[in-house]
Write a protein that binds this DNA or RNA. Sequence first.
DNA 1: TCTATTACGCAACAGCGTTGCTGTATTCTC
DNA 2: GAGAATACAGCAACGCTGTTGCGTAATAGA
Lengths: 378, 378
Amino acid sequence: MRNPAAGLGFLRDYNEGLVVAIARDSVPFDRASVAAATGLTPQAVSKVLARLIKQGLIAPSGLRRQGAGKPTTLYELVPTSRFAVGVHVARRTLRTVLTDLRGDVVTSAVTPLPPDFTPQDLLRAMADGVVHLTRDRPDTSGRITGVGIGMVGPLDHALGIVRDAHRLRHWHDVPLRERAEEVLGLPVHLDKDVTAGVTAEAWRRGPAFDDAALIMVESGVGAGLWLDGRAHRGAHTNAGEFGHTVLQLDGPRCACGRHGCLEVLHDRAVADGDIPRAARILAAGVVNLIQTIDIGHVVLAGADLLRHHRSYRAAVADAIEAEVPRADWLTVEVTLSSLGADIIAAGAAMQILDASYGVPSPASVGPAIPMQIEQQAR
Amino acid sequence: MRNPAAGLGFLRDYNEGLVVAIARDSVPFDRASVAAATGLTPQAVSKVLARLIKQGLIAPSGLRRQGAGKPTTLYELVPTSRFAVGVHVARRTLRTVLTDLRGDVVTSAVTPLPPDFTPQDLLRAMADGVVHLTRDRPDTSGRITGVGIGMVGPLDHALGIVRDAHRLRHWHDVPLRERAEEVLGLPVHLDKDVTAGVTAEAWRRGPAFDDAALIMVESGVGAGLWLDGRAHRGAHTNAGEFGHTVLQLDGPRCACGRHGCLEVLHDRAVADGDIPRAARILAAGVVNLIQTIDIGHVVLAGADLLRHHRSYRAAVADAIEAEVPRADWLTVEVTLSSLGADIIAAGAAMQILDASYGVPSPASVGPAIPMQIEQQAR
DNA sequence: TCTATTACGCAACAGCGTTGCTGTATTCTC
DNA sequence: GAGAATACAGCAACGCTGTTGCGTAATAGA
C-alpha cells in the first residue's frame, strides 16, 4: 500500500470522475441533475464543470427552457477531447484500437505476430500500430492519454510485469510496461485480457454495472470480474481463471493438471460438435460464479462463444432461471458483449481512460498522469 | 447510489480510519511511522492524532529515546474506549459477544432460541443479551457503538431486511434492522454470517489481509469474502453460497435443486465417516475459489470443520500446493480462525466498529453514527 | 556549557465544497 | 407592453482539510 492517504487532490479527482461518469451517459445533462445524483451542491457542480470545461472534457451543448425562469444550461461530453490506444496481444495476432473518451472505437486494426514472438517483436508491432492508428486522425495529436495492453496471464498488473504468458516462449518476467513506456513515450497499463474486457463493458455502461462478470470463450475460458464498481484482480492479478475451476471431480485431466476443469469439459463438447452441451457446461460454471460472488450482470464474449451466441445465451439464461434459488429477486442480466472482437483491446484502452478520468479509489491515486490540454480559443 | 460525493468530512474520516487501523496493530506507534505509512505529512498526522485523542480512541503511551534529539512520543489504541455487541443467530441458539475496539472478545454468551422462533422472540433475546453482556462492565456505559447481527441469508444488507432465513419459518421479508434499532436504541447492522465472520478476521489482522476468504463449515458450507480491502457482498447481498457450487455435474441432487454441489458431496463424505474425503472435496472448492477470484488468504472456521481442523487444513494446503499452477509465487496462506466459535458474532460486532472507525469508501458514507464521547478529564 | 540533532506544533496558506446573496434570463400575469 | 414571478448562474466569504515555513523543546555528545 503506497500512499493511501487522501488529500484535497483526491477529492477533486473523485468528484470530477463522478461528473465525467454522468457525462459519459451521452445524453446532455444539466447542473441540477448532477447535484441530485452526486449530493454536491449546485455551486460545487458549477466549479467542477468549470474545471472540466477548461480541460476540454465537457462543453456546453445548449439551453433547455422549461417554463418560467432562466433556461437551464445543458452540457455534454466532448468524446474527441481524449483518446486512448488499446492492444490485445493474442497468440498470433495483435489487435490495436483507438477509442475516444466515451469508449467508442474510432479505429481498429489487426496485424499478425510472428510465431513465438519476442518482447522486442511485440514492442515493434505496438509502435507501428500506434503510428498507423493515429496517422489519419490529426485530431488525436497530443490527446492520446496512454496505451493499454491486454493479454493472457500470469502477469502482475501493479508492477507491469509479464510473469509467464501462457503458451508463449520468451515471456518470463518481462517488465513489459516499463519497456513499452520507453518505446512509446506514453503511459502504459498492463492487465489480463479478461479484466481489460470487463472494463470495456463497465466504462460504457456506467455505474449501474456494479457487480458483473465477462465470460470469455476464445482459445480458453476466462472471466473478467467487475466487483463493487471496480475491476477485481485478486491478490496476484490472477483472478478470472474461470476455465480452470473443476466441475467434475473425476473428469478428464486438463492441461493445467487438475481433473474435470470447466475448460476441458467444454472443449471436449465442442470437439464432439455438441455446442448445446458445451453451452450447458459453461452455464453451470456461470451459476457457480453467481453463487460464489453474486453478480448482477453476465456479459458473454469471445470469438468461439459469439459464433454460437444463441445457444450460449439461452443455456446461461435457462440455467440461472432453473438453478438459482429465488431467481425472482436474485435477478441476473445476461447480455452479449457490445464490442465484439474489439472488446479486449478496447477495454485495455478504457483502463487508461479509467485511470485518468474515472472515479478513483483512494489507494489507487498514483502519480498523476500529466496531461494539461487547455481548451483552445477559437 | 446515494450521495457518493466526497467532501472534507470524507477526507477526515478516511485519514482517521487509516490511523486507527495502524493503531489497532497494538504495538505503540509514533508520528513519523504513521506519516511514512500513509503519505500524510507529520504535521497532518499530529492533527489527526489530536482529533483521535480528543475522541478517546488513542492515548499517548510513553516516550522513546533513540539517540540525540527530542524523544519520540509514542501512542497506542485505547481498546476500551469503544465497544460493540455482535450476535450470531443460529438455528437453535443466539450467541452474543461484546468486543472492544481492538476486536478482542470481552464477554461471550450463548442462549437457546425457541424452535421456529419468531422475529419477536429474537428481538427479546437480543435485548436480554445486551443487558446481560454489559451488566458487569460499567466501563461500557455509553460506549456501545452499535449491534451487529450475523445470520444465514438470503437477506439484504443495505436495506436491513431478512428475505428468507434458510430453514426458518416466520422469516420472510422481515425488516430486522429497523425493528432492532427501535428495540435496542442502538445502530444495527445486518449481514450474512460468513460475511460477518470474514470481517472479524480482517479487522483483527489489518491491511495485509486484503483478498481473503473465510471458509465456514457449520450446518452448511459457506464462504465470506474480503476483496480489495473490504467485504464483498455482491449485487444482492448473496455472495458466499460456496456450498452450492457444483463440483460434480452428475452428482447427487442437493437440497438446493442442483446436482453435485460441494455441500452435498461433502456432507455425504462426513456421513460416511470419511473426513479426509470431505476435506478433499472442500479443498477442491477452495482451489476453484482461488482460480476464480485469486485470494491470498484462506481462513478455516466453523464447528464442524474445527473439530477436524488438522485434516481440513492439510487437505486445503496440499490441494493448493498440488493444483494451483505456479504455486511458488501464487502464494496462499491457510490459517485457522483465531476466534473459534465466536467468530460470527464477533465479526458482526466488528462490522459496527468498521462502519464507524474503519477506513470508509466514498460511497459508503452514510448518515454518520452520532457518538461524541469526549475524553474525560481526570 | 555549547552544539548538533530530532521531534513537535503554531501560524499562515492553498484548495476543496458550502453558504448567502446578487445578477440574469425567461415566462406568466395583468 | 410593463411588472411580477420563477428558475438558474455565479461571485464572495467562509469552514475545514492537509501543507508549508519556521520557531521551540528536549535530548545526547563534545
